[in-house]
Computed example of a mutant assay.
Amino acid sequence: MNKPSFILLDGTLCEESEALVSPINRGLMYGDSCFDTLRLYHGQFLQWERHFARLKEGLGYLRMGCPWSSSELKKDIMKLLRENGLTQGDAMVRLQVWREGGRGYRTEASGARWMIQASPYEADKDKALNLTIAETRCIPSKSLKRTVKLGSGLNYVQAAAEARDANCDNALMFTIDDYISETTTANVFWVKGHRLFTPSVSCDLLPGVMRSIIIDLCKQEGIPVIQGEYQRDELKEAEALFCCNSLIEIQPVHTVGDLTFDEDHQLIQKLKQLISGYKEIHLKE
């Protein structure tokens, strides 16, 4: 018999299959929520404070109170990992927070309900991705704040459906002005002439924690990183392209539409080594 998987719901440990939330749920009805996803390495956090700061920023943007301090939330995550037997391997943790209260767009409620989920995680980082070009566009930052993870991700769902229909792994998304932005789950970089290029935050992307780590490492190593607004034709001259986020770290891309890239490019291999060294240092902190 399989051991049940547990979650934390408003601080109470319960089996995932038996967890109950009210159908009058603003996160469910309106996407009135935010979340964060992170990877733990044998029970150790990588850049925890950046993840917590982003979650807290999202709650502030939604005018909601933060239900924990940084140390309290870490303790809750570790409690859940121990209960699920996940302290000796890699785990994916998802933190979801939604506003309490009832129906109606307008509300005076600012209190938060929350849930933490944890599951085993094994990255397939060596698999090169095939990306389709999404017709679904990114939500403009003038409409919703793009530096936080908000609960309403329907545009990502639609773009991911396009990738599925095209028999691809993911979809490359663009702004409404046709600038390259991100995939449904990751930031993107490409290599051209020993330099890295990546869309700037003006391109309606979520600037991920791993994206920041890569940019910092490149500065330390003297690898130029040029951030800007780039249209699709820029990729025609790219030698290699990769995706990154806190779960996959770095994953090479084989194709984007009819374009093909070097998935074993030496700069991608160097960045993987730099991230491994970075983890050796920072996971001990």
Score class of each variant (00 low, 15 high):
R164D: 01
T107A: 02
L13K: 12
K284M: 11
V148S: 07
Q269H: 14
Y30K: 01
R103N: 06
R211P: 06
K272I: 07
S212C: 12
S119W: 12
F242V: 00
D169E: 00
K79D: 04
I281F: 13
P224C: 08
D177R: 14
C243M: 11
I226D: 02
E182A: 14
P207G: 03
S276W: 08
Q158V: 13
L129E: 04
L144A: 05
K279E: 07
L62C: 14
G43F: 05
L9K: 02
I7K: 01
E280G: 11
Y105V: 11
V201R: 12
N2G: 06
S212T: 11
L80T: 05
V256Y: 02
S152C: 14
L62N: 10
Y121C: 03
G11R: 03
K236M: 05
T87I: 15
R82Y: 12
K142E: 14
A134K: 09
F189P: 09
Q220L: 13
P199R: 02
H254L: 15
S17K: 15
L8P: 04
L154I: 15
K272P: 05
C244L: 03
C14S: 14
G11A: 04
L206E: 00
N187E: 00
D262Q: 09
I176N: 11
E237Y: 12
G58R: 11
R195H: 09
K75Q: 14
V97E: 00
T175A: 10
A91K: 04
P140D: 05
R113M: 12
K149I: 00
Y41E: 00
D169Y: 02
D32R: 01
P252N: 09
D258I: 12
L80E: 02
P120C: 03
Q44Y: 06
G151V: 12
E182I: 11
C244E: 00
P23D: 01
F197Q: 02
R50P: 03
H194Y: 12
K236R: 08
L81S: 01
H51A: 10
E239H: 07
